[in-house]
Each structure stands twice: as structure tokens, then as C-alpha cells.
Design a protein around this nucleic acid. Structure first.
Length: 272
DNA sequence: AACGCGCCCTGTCCGC
DNA sequence: TGCGGACAGGGCGCGT
């Protein structure tokens, strides 16, 4: 499941390889990955030149020289792969292909098509950007800022962390890993997180995201980077997907509990 | 208004 | 071996 570290890895890899690239044509094989219907996606892209590739939350953002932006939410199984990368041959579910003037193409491949591609004109971007919450690696993601938000919510803290309008970029894997690091059970109501725990949680979120970026993300099943390669963080997961296996800290068997249709993994001894 | 739920989609796995 | 069903889950639309 691509979250912030996976989007960051893809953006960093694509940035030098897509700069100055000019889009000449667009092949849309599956329209259901296009958000914002009626924006003329296929007609509006040709002629644009890439200025750079960045990230907002868990979205890869391709910025064009005219300040238009293509936001790519990878959903569950989305991949952004260049046609000349070794992993391009593994893209068997290409939903959208951007053809480039230099002969390459950028493939958006997505088996389950939960992903979304949205094109924004310069004046449209600020409103979309404002819908996303704090960047967890930015300076303004402080313990106080996190606590100000958690104290106003009664939803389980795991669910709170998945809300992209609060903290942008954290998904199920890193939410659970950060909660383990902070010693907080995923089921705890957000407004029951103490001031001290909010500090631990803020630090846990930043640490796990930074460590995952350093390891090029987590491949649990489907994630691949822009070259089609797997991430390296999966062996370092402490709770996610480890039901029944011993806690790395205390040895207690990791538990799994379904919270609003999504698995939550935690150590019943370390997390209260 | 905040919150929870069902749905979208398809490859993989399990049991018979 | 083949097949049906359960399962995985990010984000969104909807109901409460």
C-alpha cells in the first residue's frame, strides 16, 4: 500500500528522469482512474513540459512548467513506471500511458484501479492542497499541533491517523508502526491520547516515515518503485502483518483486530 | 458535523 | 485439477 515513504521514493526517482520531458500524447485505457471527470484529461496534457516531480501526503505530484499539476494517488496497487525501466515489463494492467517526446512513456499501472489521476490548473491547486492536512515531516508537524487535533476527535487513534485532512501521508502500515513505537493501542480514542503520548506519537510517525524512506519504502505485496523494484522496509516492520508472531520488544504474541474494515496489529502488552 | 459503513476492483489463497 | 468464496484496503459517497 503506497503511503508517504513510497510516494517519496517514486518522486525522488522520477524527478531527475522526467525533468524537461514533454508530453506528446495520452492513452487512457481505464477511465475509472481519472478523477475530476470533464476536465479534459487526455486533451489537456499534451504539450506540457515537466518542471519537476514532488509529493504531497501520499500523492506523487508531477508539476509542469506552466504550473499545472498532475496528482497521482496510487491507491492500493498503483505503480508509476518509466517505459525504459527494467520493471516496465511487469506492468500488465496499464490504465494510463503518457507518451513523451523523447520516445519514452510514463506508465500508470494499477491492478485494482483504486488509484486516481487528477489534473489541476495552477489556480485550482491551492484548494486541493488545502484539503490535505499537515506534512508529517515538515516543521509545523509538532506535538502541540498533533495534540490540538487529536483532542477534538473521539474516533480510534488509528482511524484518526488515516484521515488525510489531518495528517497527510500516513496509511494503515505506518499508522500502526507509529502507534507501536508510541506504546498506544490502535483502539484508543484520539481524545484520550495524553500530552506525553502525543509527543511520542509525533516522534514515532516521523521516525518510522524517515526510516522507511531510507529503505525505499515497504513492499508488503504490490508496491514497486519507479524502476519496478521492491522496497526494503518490510523486514523492519514491528507489528504490521505480524499477527501471532512475537513482539520485537517483549515477546508477547502480536494481535490483530479489525477496526472499521481494516486490520489493526498491536502488541497487547506494550500498547495500552 | 463527525463518524462509520458499504462499495469499488481483481489477484491470491483456501477448502472441497 | 477446478472452482466458488473470502479476503486484502484507500478513498469516497452516503446515512445517521
Amino acid at each position: 500500500m503506497p503511503e508517504l515513504p513510497e510516494a517519496e521514493t517514486i518522486a525522488r526517482d522520477l524527478h531527475p528522469r522526467l525533468q524537461e520531458a514533454k508530453v506528446t500524447a495520452v492513452d487512457v485505457h481505464h477511465e475509472d482512474v481519472l478523477g475530476r471527470p470533464g476536465t479534459g484529461f487526455g486533451d489537456a496534457l499534451p504539450g506540457r513540459v515537466v518542471a519537476g516531480v514532488g509529493r504531497r501526503g501520499k500523492n506523487v505530484v508531477i508539476a509542469f512548467q506552466d504550473e499545472g499539476r498532475l496528482l497521482v494517488n496510487l491507491g492500493m496497487t498503483g505503480r508509476l513506471v518509466l517505459s525504459d525501466a527494467p520493471g516496465a515489463a511487469d506492468c500488465r494492467h496499464v490504465a494510463v500511458r503518457l507518451l513523451l517526446q523523447d520516445g519514452r512513456s510514463l506508465l500508470y499501472d494499477d491492478v485494482r484501479r483504486f488509484g486516481l489521476l487528477e489534473l489541476f490548473e495552477p489556480e485550482e491547486w491551492p484548494a486541493r492542497d488545502a484539503e490535505l492536512g499537515l506534512e508529517p515531516l515538515a516543521d509545523d508537524f509538532t506535538a502541540d499541533a498533533l495534540r490540538d487535533m487529536t483532542r477534538r476527535s473521539r474516533t480510534p487513534i488509528r482511524n484518526f491517523l488515516l484521515d488525510q485532512s489531518k495528517v497527510a501521508g500516513v496509511g494503515n502500515i505506518y499508522a500502526l508502526e507509529a502507534l507501536f513505537r508510541a506504546g498506544i493501542r490502535p483502539t484508543r480514542r484520539a481524545n484520550r491520547v495524553t500530552r506525553a503520548e502525543a509527543t511520542s506519537l509525533r516522534n514515532g510517525i516521523r521516525d518510522v516515515l524517515e526510516e522507511a524512506i531510507a529503505n525505499r519504502g515497504t513492499t508488503f505485496s504490490d508496491y514497486r518503485d519507479a524502476a519496478g523494484e521492491r522496497g526494503g522496509f518490510e523486514p523492519l516492520l514491528q507489528v504490521y502483518g505480524r499477527e501471532g508472531r512475537p513482539c520485537t520488544r517483549c515477546g508477547t504474541a502480536i494481535k490483530r483486530k479489525v477496526l472499521t474494515n481494516r486490520s489493526a496489529f498491536y502488541c497487547p502488552s506494550c500498547q495500552r
